[in-house]
Design a protein around this nucleic acid. Structure first.
Length: 644
DNA sequence: TAACCAGCTG
């Protein structure tokens, strides 16, 4: 139960900073108390640097003015604008009777720092003071905003009650913050009540309500609301577009972006472009991505680290690693995200040595890596067979960079060792892991067993998983099916299928995308929806026939889950979405044009062999980006050197 | 005073 507690306002010990120093001589000579206050207030109103603020602060202290409301307010504001919240807090704590304005300023400062706990604590202190200030619309706006930045929904109901108690329930700013708070935590019924009862709604009201739907994947409701909005800002468009991206509805995201461009009232901002670039990256929509690059090149304010990061990611995921490098080399503003984006880009292209080089350059420039950076580095080592280099990075994670490995880092390590054929070492690594291995870890190990034909270990792992947790997570079922199928144990495959049916778990459908003349075409396995599907099927049959007779392609039916006849299996793998996409690519582009395909799952053995043969027979570069990395097929050889 | 965005193991 929530209780307001009394918080003693004890003065904190002043740091040594406030000792008298020679610098004081540069300040004007002060006469009497009024003059002192006026002079110091005037000085603080001019924008001062931190060292000067400290000098003035020292002077305030030596004159016994630490509790002077207007001076403390000025000094707190100065410290906050210099981003020194701890000095601001020290000054605040010295003030015995803070004004409402001072409370608001300090609460807002913690809110901006995303320190909800502290801004809420201060709010409670404020309420607990017997003769203290009463919160106003500003106080509520700041406190509610800080609560909405939390990970867990706390204090919402209490604050709503207090908003009513203190008569702020008709203020637009307060209600917008409340509406946003409910929206953030998906409490859409409460949000709706606030929305409907608001006497005056503005565009922020509508956008906050809209974000509740988009953040929680209710895109139908969001579209409905968006269509009703009397006015839209670039933030409203960002909310819609990022909602689509969050739900994996990338083509819708790009469609909305194009609609926004035809609406003259708003211009794309950084947030929108970053969202759209991530949609382009996912779809491999290079033309749309390039358009954004040329757009930002003419606008100085859009040349940011965030945009560079998104452009690097987009180019890399569209197969253009050299363009990604050129963005990186040309970007003057780089942060840890930009570096990580470049490292991950090189890693997914199988350029592990380059990724390590960039990582070392990053360290030399004094940029501290974070957990995702190291994931990128380890991933690069794993895809390039750099076993010892990867192990060395992993061993240094805690001691050098102070980063505790997460399950993802362990996953990379298992993959690194297993893929290189060091299965025993990988298994030992899993046994020694301080955290419980998840299905992904087992999957990495199993995938290595399959690559290195270690049926015995594969079966042991499968037995272990089945006993300990019969694939509590959906992905595990697919893994089991695939492995049993590759071992020809169709009775077991049937059993897994039955369990999946019983638990209503659906297989994730394989999809591939290909962009032709700026339009993204999507294919699912055994697609029937594409308008030119009959023509595509005919083309695919011809292509595969030629690949067999002239390219030495032999159908590998292992990836097929079910116990079908050989002929049926052959047909099942023939309709894989990436094969349909490549047939469409050959049908709709001029000879010699590279074909770029994006797949949502990993490419199967059979499609990998087929792509090699097709690249040779048709003299085409075929780039397939699968869930895990890039495969660039040229003249019958893949850039992954069959190491995947 | 309030609403929006990035790099991610198998």
């Amino acid at each position: 139960m929530f209780k307001f507690q009394s918080f003693p306002r004890t003065a904190t010990v002043f740091p040594a900073l406030f000792k008298r120093t020679n610098h004081h001589q540069s300040l004007p000579q002060l006469q009497n108390a009024t003059t002192i206050v006026e002079t110091l207030t005037l000085l603080l109103k001019q924008r001062q640097k931190l060292s000067q603020i400290s000098q003035i602060h020292a002077r305030i202290t030596t004159h016994g003015l630490s509790s002077n409301t207007s001076l403390v307010f000025a000094i707190v504001r100065c410290y906050i604008s210099e981003k020194n919240l701890s000095f601001a807090r020290t000054s605040f704590d010295r003030c015995l009777y803070p004004s409402l304005l001072l409370w608001n300023v300090i609460i807002q400062a913690y809110s901006k720092k995303q320190n909800c706990q502290e801004s809420f604590n201060l709010f409670r202190q404020m309420l607990a003071l017997e003769d203290g200030s009463r919160p106003d619309k500003y106080t509520f706006t700041f406190v509610i905003t800080s609560c909405s930045q939390q990970n867990t929904p706390i204090y919402g109901d209490i604050i709503h009650a207090l908003v009513i108690k203190f008569g702020c329930e008709s203020d637009t700013f307060v209600c917008n913050s409340l509406l946003n708070l409910y929206s953030v935590f998906g409490k859409m019924e409460e949000a709706r009540i606030v929305f409907e009862e608001m006497p005056q709604k503005d565009v922020v009201t509508w956008t906050s309500f809209l974000s509740g739907y988009t953040k929680h994947g209710k895109m139908d409701r969001a579209v409905e609301l968006f269509n009703k909005m009397p006015e839209r800002t670039e933030v409203s468009w960002t909310v819609m577009i990022s909602g689509f991206v969050g739900m994996g509805m990338y083509t819708d995201a790009i469609h909305y972006f194009n609609c926004m461009l035809s609406d003259d009232t708003v211009k794309p901002n950084e947030a929108i472009l970053v969202c759209v670039l991530s949609a382009c990256a996912y779809l491999g929509a290079l033309d749309q991505g390039k358009w954004i690059r040329s757009y930002v090149e003419n606008i100085e304010t859009l040349k940011s680290a965030n945009i560079s990061t998104a452009l690097i990611d987009m180019y890399a995921k569209c197969g253009k690693i050299d363009c990604a490098r050129s963005i990186f080399n040309g970007s003057s503003k780089r942060d840890v995200f930009t570096w990580t984006s470049m490292i991950s880009a090189l890693s997914m292209h199988g350029l592990g040595e380059d990724a390590l080089r960039v990582f070392s350059q990053m360290s030399n420039e004094g940029i501290k890596p974070d957990d995702i950076t190291l994931l990128g580095v380890l991933n690069g080592c794993s895809h390039s067979g750099l076993v010892e280099e990867g192990c060395s990075v992993f061993d240094k994670m805690e001691s050098i960079w102070g980063i505790s490995p997460m399950i993802q880092h362990y996953g990379c390590m298992v993959d690194l060792l297993g893929r290189a054929g060091q299965l025993e070492r990988a298994l030992e690594f899993v046994r020694r892991m301080p955290i419980e291995p998840d299905i992904v870890i087992w999957r990495a190990l199993l995938s290595s067993c399959r690559i290195h034909r270690n049926v015995k270990l594969g079966e042991q792992i499968i037995d272990y998983i089945s006993q300990s947790d019969p694939c509590g997570q959906g992905g595990g079922y697919v893994l089991l099916s695939n492995l049993y199928a590759s071992l020809g144990r169709w009775d077991k495959v049937d059993g897994v299928r039955k369990q999946m049916n019983d638990k209503n778990i659906e297989l994730r459908t394989g999809c591939s995308w290909i962009e032709v003349n700026g339009i993204v075409h999507k294919f699912v396995s055994a697609d029937k929806l594409h308008p030119r599907i009959t023509e595509i099927h005919q083309k695919l049959n011809q292509v595969l026939k030629k690949a067999r007779t002239e390219g030495g392609y032999i159908t590998n039916t292992n990836p097929v889950l079910f116990d079908l006849s050989n002929e049926e299996k052959e047909q099942a793998v023939s309709w894989h979405s990436e094969k349909l996409a490549v047939a469409f690519g050959l049908l709709s582009t001029h000879s010699g044009t590279p074909i770029m395909i994006v797949k949502n799952l990993r490419i199967c053995d059979d499609c990998h062999s087929a792509m090699k043969a097709i690249s040779r027979v048709f003299s085409r570069e075929i780039i397939v980006r699968d869930r895990s990395r890039f495969h660039s097929f040229r003249e019958g050889i893949c850039s992954c050197k069959d190491y995947w």
